[in-house]
Write a protein that binds this DNA or RNA. Structure first.
Lengths: 158, 158
DNA sequence: CTAGATTCATATGTATACAAATGATCGGTC
DNA sequence: GACCGATCATTTGTATACATATGAATCTAG
């Protein structure tokens, strides 16, 4: 560590802090911890998904389309907890990569029906295998008995 | 529910799914749950911070600058788990709003030192009061005994 | 003391994430 | 059966989030 870094680290805490300020520890707040944990998972995902080159949201969209066979864009957004605007972009990129196809719904001309292509189906099937490993890697720091406890509590926070 | 919606919902699940596909439940994966929980917290934050109009990351930056008095941009990024590129944008907006000020470090001309302005200090102090309530609201679905358990497990996932 | 590695800030490009607004379409109601 | 509110997809604008590249400055090894 350089002299300068030492000096910066040794900078005296500002005098006369309000009590609430002095007692507040950012690192211990749920919000910060949730963000960090999510961040770590995203990194594990990117690494684990490898050459399939999917983002977590692209994967989530593919999975739900696969589950239901045919979905409208808005419906998909609700199922994956995505904004309509966000959904738009995710779908756009999946269509551009030939993983899903969009057809106009003949019954309701407001909607566009989403479906997997053959390439998309093959991709989801391969991705799900890796997703299982990604989930395991994310939960690796917890013991077998801690995992269900954590997941149950996490589910209550949604 | 309209006839059309019913028809879409009743769309038969694709036949001949691979076993791994059929067994995979997106809604139960840690990644999905972490994302949803973080999403919910962000909404609570935005609501709770009210007219102070800070994003979670802007708040985090202000808190750490307040904690240390003087910080370099990279140091701040490490403390708040932000990318240098992300830090850049967050700092830019805080400077534009007059909450922090940037001065060149005379000892190391690569670095810029960040400091709170008077307005910034007043803002953090008010924001921390609300942040405590935001944390409480985020953890509200858990009982008093569940909260430390959850936080301890969450901390292990970072 | 200099060459190479490192660090800092910045810039660019892609991908969420959401608010807010828009236009097209649909549903229920009078 | 025309109007009105609701829904769907899209667009725009702002804010993370990160990979990657760049130039300037510093540090370290030799």
């Amino acid at each position: 560590m350089s002299k300068r870094a030492a000096k910066l680290a040794a900078a005296p805490p500002p005098k006369g802090e309000a009590p609430a300020v002095a007692a507040y520890r950012l690192e211990e707040q749920v919000g910060h911890l949730l963000r960090r944990a999510h961040q770590r998972h995203a990194a594990i995902f990117q690494d684990g998904i490898g050459d399939l080159q999917l983002t977590p949201m692209q994967f989530a969209a593919l999975v739900k389309i696969c589950d239901l066979g045919r979905v409208s864009q808005n419906q998909l957004g609700r199922l994956t907890a995505m904004d309509p605007a966000t959904t738009q972009g995710v779908i756009q990129r999946l269509v551009a990569r030939g993983l899903i196809e969009r057809t106009a719904d003949p019954d309701d001309r407001r909607m566009t029906v989403l479906r997997l292509t053959a390439h998309g189906r093959a991709t989801v099937e391969a991705a799900i295998v890796r997703a299982v490993e990604i989930t395991a890697a994310t939960l690796a720091p917890l013991t077998d008995s801690e995992r269900p406890v954590f997941l149950a509590l996490l589910r209550k926070l949604i």
